[in-house]
Amino acid sequence: MKIGYYAIFNYEEYDRNEEQYGIGIEFPDIPECISCARTEQEALFMAKEVLEFITANMKVNELPKMSELNEIELKYNEKAFYISYNTEDIDLSTFTCY
């Protein structure tokens, strides 16, 4: 089954530890799905990884409805990216929870 949602990349996330800006990643439809990255390429990878991690064990009826792109309000420093994966391609043994 293919699972996909829009991720919002915020390009003004400031990391106080490293004293530099990065990209904050969030999924409006799945609030617990958040991550961050330094580059857009890394952000695309991290967004897919966190989406897989959070949704891989969800039952179909537990998955939230995906918002349409025109329903997502973006700020001047944000972009929306459609992130998806195929559940058959996931090896759940690679995920470790503590």
Rank of each mutant, 00 (worst) to 15 (best):
I3V: 15
I72S: 00
I3W: 05
F95T: 08
N77G: 00
E26M: 07
A43D: 13
R38V: 08
L92V: 09
E42D: 15
P31W: 05
M58R: 12
E12Y: 01
L51N: 07
F53K: 11
V50W: 07
T94D: 13
L69E: 13
N57F: 13
R16H: 01
L51C: 09
C36V: 00
Y82Q: 09
V50S: 09
Y85M: 07
N77T: 03
M46R: 14
Y5E: 11
A56P: 00
E62I: 13
Y21L: 03
D29H: 04
M58Y: 14
S35Q: 10
N10L: 00
T39S: 15
T96V: 12
D91Y: 11
E73P: 01
A7Q: 03
C36D: 10
T94E: 15
Y82G: 12
A43V: 12
K48P: 04
D91T: 03
K2W: 10
Y21P: 06
E68H: 03
S84P: 05
E42K: 13
G22D: 03
E19C: 01
E71L: 06
L44K: 14
S35I: 09
A56Q: 13
N10R: 03
F27A: 04
A47D: 11
G22P: 10
C36P: 00
C97H: 14
G24L: 00
E40R: 10
Y5F: 15
V50E: 12
T55Y: 05
E71H: 08
K65T: 13
I90V: 15
T87Q: 13
D29R: 02
K65V: 15
E12G: 00
E18V: 01
Y11P: 04
G24W: 05
N77Q: 01
R16S: 01
T39F: 09
L69H: 06
M66H: 04
K75E: 04
Y5A: 06
Y76R: 02
Y76N: 02
L44Y: 04
C36K: 08
D91S: 11
P64V: 11
Y11E: 04
L92W: 02
F95H: 10
G22M: 04
R38Q: 06
Y82M: 14
G24M: 01
Y6E: 05
E19T: 03
I23T: 02
M66S: 15
F45T: 12
I34R: 12
G24Y: 03
V60F: 10
P31Y: 07
Q20M: 12
T94M: 09
F95D: 08
L63F: 06
P31S: 11
R16A: 01
N61H: 15
S84L: 06
E13V: 01
I72N: 01
Y21V: 01
N86C: 11
E71R: 03
E52R: 10
T87E: 15
Y21S: 03
N86M: 06
F45Q: 14
K59C: 06
I23M: 07
E62W: 11
L51R: 08
A47Q: 09
K79Q: 06
V60S: 09
S35H: 09
L92Y: 05
K79P: 01
F45M: 10
M46F: 14
M1Q: 08
P64I: 12
E68R: 15
F9K: 07
K2Q: 14
